[in-house]
Computed example of a mutant assay.
Amino acid sequence: MDAANSHQQAEGRPLIAPSTTEHPLYDSVVEACRTVFDPEIPVNIFDLGLIYTIAIDDAGVVRIVMTLTAPGCPVAGEMPGWVSDAVGAVPGVQDVEVEMTFDPQWGMDMMSEEARLELGFM
């Protein structure tokens, strides 16, 4: 590790917090997120890269940090509710907290390969 990396790690946390991928509910929560679509783009919000973090605690509380393709997105006020409803229906999920962020700002490089193919970017 070079000096620049050790300084950066010591200075703070990553821009996007890691997800709780080892939790037994993680895959089901991801699948629930894949049922939510941005109405302007025919790709689900997970593959678009709009879901930054899925954190699940031992009590089954899911905390999702997400963004939108643009701050002025027409469904900005509704999409967190759609995500909460979809994830809240997963068996074992006790509560869902959805936090919206624009830091870091979403970019097309956050899309999965499948999303890029679907939209003709590959």
Results as ranks from 00 to 15, higher is better:
residue 4 A to R: 13
residue 6 S to N: 12
residue 7 H to C: 09
residue 9 Q to M: 12
residue 9 Q to S: 12
residue 9 Q to I: 14
residue 10 A to E: 12
residue 10 A to V: 04
residue 10 A to H: 09
residue 11 E to C: 14
residue 12 G to T: 11
residue 12 G to D: 10
residue 12 G to R: 09
residue 14 P to Y: 15
residue 14 P to W: 15
residue 15 L to S: 06
residue 15 L to R: 00
residue 16 I to C: 07
residue 16 I to D: 08
residue 17 A to F: 06
residue 17 A to D: 02
residue 18 P to H: 01
residue 19 S to Q: 01
residue 20 T to N: 09
residue 21 T to Y: 00
residue 22 E to I: 05
residue 24 P to D: 01
residue 24 P to R: 03
residue 25 L to G: 01
residue 25 L to Q: 00
residue 25 L to C: 01
residue 26 Y to L: 05
residue 27 D to W: 02
residue 28 S to Q: 07
residue 32 A to P: 03
residue 32 A to Y: 11
residue 34 R to F: 11
residue 36 V to N: 09
residue 38 D to L: 07
residue 39 P to S: 04
residue 39 P to C: 05
residue 39 P to V: 04
residue 39 P to R: 07
residue 40 E to G: 14
residue 41 I to N: 09
residue 43 V to M: 04
residue 43 V to Q: 03
residue 43 V to T: 05
residue 44 N to D: 15
residue 46 F to L: 01
residue 46 F to V: 00
residue 47 D to A: 03
residue 47 D to T: 02
residue 48 L to T: 10
residue 51 I to W: 11
residue 51 I to F: 12
residue 51 I to C: 10
residue 51 I to T: 10
residue 52 Y to F: 04
residue 52 Y to M: 02
residue 52 Y to P: 06
residue 53 T to D: 12
residue 53 T to S: 13
residue 55 A to H: 11
residue 55 A to T: 04
residue 57 D to C: 13
residue 58 D to A: 02
residue 59 A to M: 09
residue 59 A to T: 12
residue 60 G to R: 01
residue 62 V to N: 06
residue 62 V to P: 14
residue 62 V to L: 09
residue 64 I to S: 08
residue 64 I to P: 08
residue 65 V to C: 08
residue 65 V to P: 06
residue 65 V to L: 13
residue 68 L to G: 01
residue 69 T to G: 10
residue 73 C to H: 15
residue 73 C to T: 12
residue 73 C to W: 07
residue 75 V to H: 07
residue 76 A to S: 15
residue 76 A to T: 14
residue 77 G to M: 12
residue 78 E to M: 15
residue 78 E to T: 15
residue 81 G to L: 07
residue 82 W to F: 15
residue 82 W to H: 14
residue 83 V to D: 10
residue 83 V to G: 12
residue 86 A to V: 04
residue 86 A to K: 03
residue 90 V to N: 14
residue 90 V to M: 08
residue 90 V to I: 06
residue 91 P to F: 11
residue 91 P to T: 03
residue 92 G to V: 03
residue 93 V to A: 02
residue 93 V to R: 05
residue 93 V to S: 03
residue 97 E to T: 10
residue 97 E to K: 13
residue 98 V to K: 12
residue 99 E to K: 15
residue 101 T to Y: 10
residue 101 T to V: 05
residue 102 F to W: 15
residue 103 D to E: 13
residue 103 D to S: 13
residue 103 D to P: 07
residue 103 D to F: 13
residue 104 P to N: 07
residue 104 P to I: 10
residue 105 Q to M: 15
